[in-house]
Design a protein around this nucleic acid. Sequence first.
DNA 1: TTGTCGGCCGATCGCCGACAA
DNA 2: TTGTCGGCGATCGGCCGACAA
Lengths: 231, 231
Amino acid sequence: IPAKFWRACAGISAKAPVVNSRVYYFPQGHIDQAASQPRNLSPLVYSRPVIPCRVAAVNYFADPNTDEVFLKILLLPVTDGSAQDFLPPAVAAEGNSGNGNGDDEEVASYAKILTRSDANNGGGFSVPRSCADLVFPPLNFEEDPPVQNLRITDLHGAVWEFRHIYRGTPRRHLFTSGWSKFVNSKKIISGDTVVFMKDSDGRMFVGLRRNMSLDDDIADGGLDWFAAMDE
Amino acid sequence: IPAKFWRACAGISAKAPVVNSRVYYFPQGHIDQAASQPRNLSPLVYSRPVIPCRVAAVNYFADPNTDEVFLKILLLPVTDGSAQDFLPPAVAAEGNSGNGNGDDEEVASYAKILTRSDANNGGGFSVPRSCADLVFPPLNFEEDPPVQNLRITDLHGAVWEFRHIYRGTPRRHLFTSGWSKFVNSKKIISGDTVVFMKDSDGRMFVGLRRNMSLDDDIADGGLDWFAAMDE
DNA sequence: TTGTCGGCCGATCGCCGACAA
DNA sequence: TTGTCGGCGATCGGCCGACAA
């Protein structure tokens, strides 16, 4: 997926490492915290607690089941001086747009944590005013009520249609038809976050951030298996 | 699963080989027709088109997803004369009741191919008269209407509850409440077959036979990878 | 005896404004 | 500005007898 969408979905606190920057890799931390055990690692990797590396590639993905975004980071150990400009072509093709692909283009985005009313009740979604202003096409307010159908693409390319209406007393923006199908299909629950995005061509996208805390479990700062080296 | 249930569900045309009988095994036929490739076979197996074998074990199973019954058959090649009474304990424990386990006990069973009304419409099931007589407890016909709740176990031990009622003009046996939940949960469609069974203790069971023919594709005689040898 | 149909009743879904935080 | 609630109309599931094959 494009890096700009990854950043919008992952949130401000998530940072992707810069390609060709140098980092420290902590094998034991990786083993402890990874959901799946890392594979294809030479036994030599475990022989030291920390390994200086160069970030050879960073690729952006969205989980096909949960829509959660994640990174694949290719690290190459640096022996401090030799052969540092060896650039493998391996991962580069897998996650499209590693970088340099329209990355300067800006993306308008708005993230909202879903309330119980958004996720469970009546099947509607209360659109925050600034979300409607920032990413959705302006309504024709001379209609009564103002209403439009939005076609929004998720991170896998599937298109979802939402009825966007401005009504009620006092007036507010709402998603009605199409919203509950989206919620049920994605198994979204209150506390999860939806991220609406619009690229410079006006195309709209939607991503998800799952609520990682039945009891505010994991701290907000990321679980890093690497740390940036001081230059 | 017990062999008696396997036989009731598989139908009259399916035949399980007799343990210790001699058969011919056709490796190429197995490879051609098997959904999954056979594993752990010595390359020697493929060196000949047909291999004389002894049936060492036959075990009865029901697919956890489709409820379809199937067999696991352990074949041992016979070298014609030597070491024929070598009996491995391998598969014997896996599918309970290989044989000899209450196999003489009789099972009343009734199989019905589901009509569109059974599978799609209104959510009811038209119980054939003889099915009700053979396997379900008799209703109290002095009630109006005669009605009872049946608790029927599937081949994985899960219990399903059906409301069995005798009503309508003219009177007929029907399943109402509980039937559609069963149909939806098992993904049953018209053309599939349900098999109702009752053991000698009056416990009732239900199995399924899926309709293997979008266009009456496969002939009725089984796909045998072995053939009985003449004695 | 039993497959299919239309009627109909109740449950659920989901769109709505009211109201208050 | 927006979260939650009760109302209520439309839709759907599913129980029913009628009727015919």
